[in-house]
């Protein structure tokens, strides 16, 4: 658990400076973090989602209807996942709002982001900012 916390902080530090991201280093750290995720799904707000372990939920995560989380997913405190959304191999930081019917795979969503999108399929990227359309979201491929 200690190592998980340490790595997530390192990842946060790296993406705080989007201009200087070395994607190769980030990818190594990202994969190493994903491989260490422990299952923690005891407390969340929502209605019977599907979990493929391991999924780690921090406090107060809100999950919509018919959501599929996992494997290898970390979700930070107070984040919200919209109905029919599916997330695997990804890190969602705290206070993030994710829209309906999105599919996220190998993604990092930075804290306080709002992906107010629907019906999109996003993979292998860092997503940051708040927007109603995919074109307006800041997206860094990695």
């Amino acid at each position: 658990m200690e190592s998980m916390k340490k790595k997530i902080m390192e990842i946060e530090e790296i993406i705080n400076n989007p201009e200087n991201i070395k994607t190769v280093d980030l990818k190594i750290l990202f994969n190493s973090f994903l491989s260490e995720i422990k299952n923690r799904i005891a407390s969340y707000i929502g209605d019977y989602p599907t979990f493929i372990e391991p999924v780690f939920l921090e406090e107060n995560v809100k999950i919509g209807d018919d959501v599929l989380l996992g494997p290898n997913v970390y979700i930070g405190a107070n984040s919200e996942i919209g109905d029919y959304t599916e997330i695997s191999n990804s890190i969602v930081f705290e206070n993030v709002k994710i829209g309906e019917n999105l599919k996220l795979e190998n993604c990092i969503i930075t804290k306080n982001s709002t992906l107010n999108l629907r019906n999109s399929n996003l993979s292998n990227c860092i997503l940051m900012g708040s927007s109603d359309s995919e074109d307006e979201i800041m997206k860094i491929k990695f």
């Binding site: 299952n39 799904i41 209605d47 019977y48 989602p49 599907t50 979990f51 493929i52 372990e53 018919d66 996992g70 494997p71 290898n72 695997s88 191999n89």
Partner: peptide, 22 residues
């Protein structure tokens, strides 16, 4: 590996594929 299906009353191939490919 545990899959919690929530409201679904059976596993499906998609669940298994998500595990196998990882």
């Amino acid at each position: 590996i545990q899959i919690n299906t929530g409201r679904e009353c059976a596993l499906n191939a998609y669940h298994i594929h998500q595990i196998i490919k990882n």
